[in-house]
């Protein structure tokens, strides 16, 4: 209390530039803050925190959604990790992350290295809007469109036949080997624009003197890229990784519309398993277990990624 009072006294003397710590210093009757917070906390508590805890609670039971549940403790978790089918779902997610995240980021970095001055181009505004466009289109629409492109009579097979590659045509989303990469490439299509726009904006903020210094040191384009561009883009790479990896892990919409996890279970992902186990297989306890595991994976991955750029965030 006394420390807070001292800060309040200090504030009286402060004039134009108030340091953050002093600015947030207490004034009288700050209990009113709870009233401002109340509506948000009620909705957040009732519709996010409570279901999250309830989900964890259900995950400790063997429950089919109808008959009384049996307490099994962490058995569902042990089983989930031992269960090859679920392991495969997480493996599929890891493969999708290569397509959603690694591929677009590497490609966008390469292209950014090739065009470091692109933001000064005439018409850049137009290109930015167009390249970013797939990000704002509903995933259900994206999946519908690409399902048609990959269809047996679709544009892709038509194009392959036209250039004499009839032999490789196939129903892409119905193929045991190719369905997963085909879905992954949809993710690449969605994420490449985000990465490119992000990195081009980032590169325009790098101090031009750094490039001049590198050139004076006799650096070629390749060394310039690794010495100046890549380190300068660290914050943007962290953001791109967060957004695209999370998108790859939460690919339920895309999978549900494009493949329903098939053929067989070759494209199933954790999010889809949550839905399938709860509503098709009546394994509600296990479904909640998978949901909690997915949340944990996302928590860990985003925390690790944010280590790349510790300077960020308040």
């Amino acid at each position: 209390m006394s420390a807070e009072k001292m800060a309040a006294t200090a504030e009286v003397g402060a004039i134009a530039v108030v340091p953050t710590s002093a600015r947030r210093a207490p004034r009288k009757s700050d209990r009113i803050a709870y009233l401002y917070l109340l509506p948000a906390l009620v909705v957040f508590g009732a519709f996010l925190l409570f279901p999250l805890l309830h989900g964890f609670w259900i995950s400790l039971y063997d429950w089919d959604g109808l008959s009384p549940a049996t307490w099994v403790g962490f058995d569902n978790y042990v089983q989930a990790i031992a269960d090859g089918a679920l392991g495969n779902a997480f493996l599929h997610s890891a493969i999708l992350i290569v397509f959603f995240s690694v591929l677009p980021i590497c490609l966008a970095l390469l292209l950014t290295g090739l065009m470091t001055h692109a933001t000064k181009l005439k018409g850049m505004g137009f290109f930015r809007v167009v390249i970013f466009l797939p990000q704002v289109v509903a995933t259900v629409v994206v999946a519908t469109v690409w399902t048609a492109i990959y269809a047996p009579q679709g544009v892709l097979n038509q194009f392959l036949s036209a250039i004499g590659l009839e032999a490789v045509t196939r129903p892409w989303l119905g193929d045991f080997t190719w369905a997963l990469p085909a879905v992954g490439l949809i993710g690449t299509w969605v994420q490449i624009g985000l990465c490119l726009v992000l990195f081009l904006a980032g590169v325009s903020q790098i101090n031009p003197e750094l490039y001049e210094a590198a050139r004076l040191d006799g650096a070629g384009p390749v060394r310039e890229f690794f010495a100046v561009t890549l380190p300068g883009l660290r914050p943007q790479i962290a953001v791109a990784l967060t957004l695209t990896v999370v998108a790859g892990l939460k690919s339920f919409d895309l999978i549900f519309v494009a493949t329903r996890g098939g053929p067989g279970t070759t494209t199933t992902v954790p999010g889809f398993e949550v839905y399938r186990r709860a509503f098709d297989l009546n394994q509600v306890g296990m479904a909640c277990t998978v949901g909690i595991l997915l949340a944990l994976v996302i928590l860990i991955v985003t925390t690790v990624i944010n280590r790349i750029d510790p300077g960020e965030r308040a």
Binding site: F252, V274, C288, G291, I292, I298, T302
Partner: peptide, 11 residues
């Protein structure tokens, strides 16, 4: 950090 997949069943 919490994906809707982790909430949807209990919700």
């Amino acid at each position: 950090m919490v994906p809707s997949e982790a909430l949807i069943i209990p919700l």
